[in-house]
Amino acid sequence: MSKSVLVAYAMVPLLFILSMVMIPGFGSWPSIVSLLVIASFLGIASIGQTLTVLLGGIDLSIPAIIGLANVLTVRWYGAGIPFPLVVLMVIAVSMAIGATSGILSRVLNAHPLLVTLAASFMILGAVLVYTEGQTIGTVPDYLMAAVSPAGRTGPIPFPPIVVVWFALTLLVVAIEQRSLLGRYLFATGANERSARLALVPVTLVWAATFAVSAGCAAIAGILLAGFSGGADANVGQPYLFQTVAAVVVGGTALLGGSGSYGRTFAGTLLITELTTFLIGLGFSERIQQMMLGLLIILLVALYGRESHVRSQI
């Protein structure tokens, strides 16, 4: 287990050094901060994907929640609601949707793949109905500064979004390893039936996990509003495959029960580095995707030799 954690973590500095040697400017401070900002969006959106995968599920509604949060933030703030309240409302709405998906998956005994896919369609449809296609509104200047690579967080030379991502990473890893919810999460992901028999409140764990997933997607959507300065219901689209890729590249097993957000953290950095490296070499988006696919296959070949936790016990 610990060996595969090392793979992703070892590749991050290796690829960085290779990029620095091959591409002038890659190692400069503004470049590093830009990469961290871009990685932060993916990293925050991938928190939920990691947790739902650990549970043995998957969350396909992350892009839709990002779009929902993005549009609502811009619209509500533009309508004069104070920004902190907007953030709370957007996260609350998103978490309620996430919790519903989690509960429905258990109550209907339907795979979350289907439930969250259906949720995506309903969310995006509702956004279009609610906004009538008009993406009006505005975002506060400090939100734009918070996601600008030129920004700073007090004495820390990183913009707030990077600090937020690092803080969330520590928090999530702590929850995974030190809290009751974390233990319930791994127990349910490893074997739901035995978890039930051990009196783990499985449905509640699913609801909480999907709610957290949606909450993180909402944070990403709010931050993206500052990044582009406007609303777009489709802004989350790249984050469907990318979040799954970050989880897989990091080494969390898609079967659930084994892995950690700490790995996804490395996976996120690795993917961002790789795509930037390829852009630096002048490869098109098509080639970038092919290379990302190759990386996934390569890593899966390395990770895939471990059997599922259920059969290890």
């Binding site: 993206l224 990044f227 852009i279």
Partner: peptide, 18 residues
């Protein structure tokens, strides 16, 4: 034709084109 995508990819481009 998507502002957030333009910004992400331009930042990546600038990071590798000094």
């Amino acid at each position: 034709w998507t502002p957030s995508t333009v910004k992400t990819n331009t930042l990546k481009f600038l990071a590798t084109h000094p």
